[in-house]
C-alpha cells in the first residue's frame, strides 16, 4: 500500500460497490460441505470463496511436534493456483506461512487444548477465489470448521478488517479499495467477549483512525457471528 496517484473511491458518501462506510460485503456461509473432513465450512465473502477442513484431535506427525501437556492446533492456509488473476505457483510461500502462523495462534487460544495432550487439531484452508481480505475469511471459515468438527472451544472467532480509502475509515476493503487504499487492519475477534485474537496492520493510521477502525470491526463482528451461528444451526437441524 505505497502511495499511488489518488483514485476516487468514494462518491457522495458511497463506495465503489455501493456500500456504506460501515457495511461488509455480502456473506454466505455453509457448514459441513466436505465428506472426509471431521468438520468443514464454506464461506463466500464478496468475491472471496474459501473452504476449510478440520481434523482431529489426532496423532501428531511429525512426532517431535507433539506436546505432553496439550493439543497443538495447526492451520495451513493455501491459495489455489487459479484463485488470483496471475496464476499463483502452488505450494507454500512466505505470505501463506505468515498467515498460517497467525491463524494457528488465534485458533489455539480458543481451543481447550489441555483436554487433548499429545494430539493435533489441523485445519486446512483452501482459497478458491481471492478478492481482498482472504485471511479474515480464512479465520472465520476455520473457526466454523472446528465447531463443525465438535472441537471444544471457548467461542467462535470472526475475522473482519477495516481500512482507509480516500482518507476515510471504512469497513472490509474490497479488491480495488485494498489495492489503492491507505491502510488495512485485519482483526480476529471473539464477539462474545470483544477480545482480539488476531491483529495485523499495514499502511498509515493515526491513533484516532485506528480507534475508529477497531470500533467498526467490533460492531460488525456481532452481525457476522449471528450468521455463523445460524449456519451451524441450519447444518444440525437438517440431520
Amino acid at each position: 500500500m505505497i502511495d499511488m496517484e489518488e483514485r476516487i473511491m468514494i462518491e457522495n458518501g458511497t463506495r465503489l460497490d455501493g456500500r456504506r462506510f460501515d457495511e461488509v460485503r455480502p456473506i454466505k456461509i455453509e457448514v459441513g460441505v466436505l465428506r472426509n473432513a471431521v468438520g468443514s465450512a464454506y464461506v463466500e465473502w464478496g468475491k472471496n470463496k474459501v473452504i476449510a477442513a478440520a481434523f482431529g484431535p489426532r496423532e501428531v506427525h511429525p512426532r517431535h511436534q507433539q506436546s505432553p501437556i496439550k493439543a497443538i492446533v495447526r492451520c495451513n492456509y493455501n491459495m489455489a493456483a487459479f484463485s488470483v488473476p496471475d496464476r499463483k505457483r502452488p505450494g507454500p510461500d512466505r505470505r501463506s506461512s505468515e498467515i498460517s502462523k497467525v491463524i494457528s495462534d488465534a485458533l489455539t487460544g480458543q481451543v481447550f487444548v489441555e483436554r487433548f495432550p499429545r494430539t493435533a487439531v489441523d485445519v486446512f484452508v483452501e482459497v478458491l477465489e481471492a478478492s481482498a481480505g482472504t485471511r479474515c475469511v480464512a479465520l472465520t471459515a476455520s473457526s466454523l470448521a472446528l465447531a463443525d468438527a465438535g472441537i471444544p472451544m471457548r467461542g467462535l472467532l470472526v475475522g473482519c478488517a477495516a481500512g482507509k480509502i480516500n482518507g476515510e475509515v471504512v469497513l472490509d476493503l474490497g479488491k480495488e479499495e485494498d489495492n489503492y487504499g491507505e491502510a488495512d487492519l485485519p482483526v480476529g475477534i471473539e464477539p462474545m467477549t470483544g477480545e482480539i485474537s488476531l491483529m495485523q496492520m499495514d499502511g498509515h493510521f493515526t491513533r484516532e483512525e485506528f480507534d475508529k477502525a477497531l470500533g467498526l470491526i467490533t460492531e460488525a463482528s456481532k452481525g457476522i457471528h449471528e450468521m455463523m451461528i445460524e449456519a451451524l444451526k441450519r447444518r444440525y437441524s437438517e440431520v
Binding site: D105, E195, I196, L198, M199, Q200, L214
Partner: peptide
C-alpha cells in the same frame, strides 16, 4: 502491526 501468541487481548 502484528499480534503474536495464543492469548487474546482486550481492546
Amino acid at each position: 502491526m502484528q499480534k503474536g501468541g495464543t492469548a487474546n487481548l482486550t481492546v
